[in-house]
């Protein structure tokens, strides 16, 4: 067996340090070792977007990311956006209110992906939204309300003239 390596990264705003095997995947470190189970496994091979996390604000698939590669960097998982009802981000709120959540298994991946989209492009067209979230599968909603929720979060952000997109993605 190969030697474990000690890595240190900022996870949802706090530094964590742990030893990982060189072939250990980020999704397993998050889910199995740190018990952050909001990051979902559907496929393990980059086909569904359910395991999306933000790496320095950019969406990455944690099932295709080696844990050693996040050494010294910043990871945001769904748990990092809000802890409950009162600190939900506008995107989370829009997902809840627009009926964009059914079984919820795709929800964390969609919300993080959408967050990255709105950071890159605060005013996306419907076409741009669909294109951006194409890699995220949802088997329940038929996507309509998801696209609608993202649109709504974007227009609300525009209305309130906030400088950044949603709260919680702030990279350090």
């Amino acid at each position: 067996m190969t030697e474990p390596r000690v890595i240190r990264f900022r996870l949802n705003g706090e530094w964590v340090q742990l030893g990982v095997a060189p072939n250990e995947l980020l999704i397993n470190v998050l889910r199995e070792r740190l018990h952050l189970t909001g990051t979902k496994y559907w496929c393990g091979i980059g086909e569904c977007g359910g395991c999306t996390v933000l790496l320095d604000g950019e969406p990455v698939l944690s099932c295709l990311t080696l844990a050693v590669d996040v050494d010294g960097r910043e990871i945001t998982t769904i748990e990092g956006l809000a802890t409950g009802e009162d600190d939900l981000t506008p995107l989370q709120r829009a997902f809840i209110e627009e009926g964009a959540i059914q079984c919820g298994f795709c929800t964390p991946g969609f919300i993080l992906t959408a967050q990255a989209l709105l950071r890159e492009n605060p005013n996306p067209t419907e076409e741009e939204i669909r294109e951006y979230v194409r890699g995220n599968l949802c088997r329940c909603t038929g996507y309509v309300n998801i696209v609608r929720a993202i649109k709504r979060a974007a227009s609300e952000a525009a209305k309130s003239r906030r400088p950044g997109p949603a709260a919680g993605a702030a990279s350090g």
Partner: peptide, 21 residues
């Protein structure tokens, strides 16, 4: 009205069988 389990699901706090440890 927004669904009752919406907050749990939107914040990654809903526990599925896959998450049980």
């Amino acid at each position: 009205v927004g669904r009752k389990d919406g907050v749990l699901k939107a914040t990654g706090r809903a526990t599925y069988a896959y998450d049980v440890w």
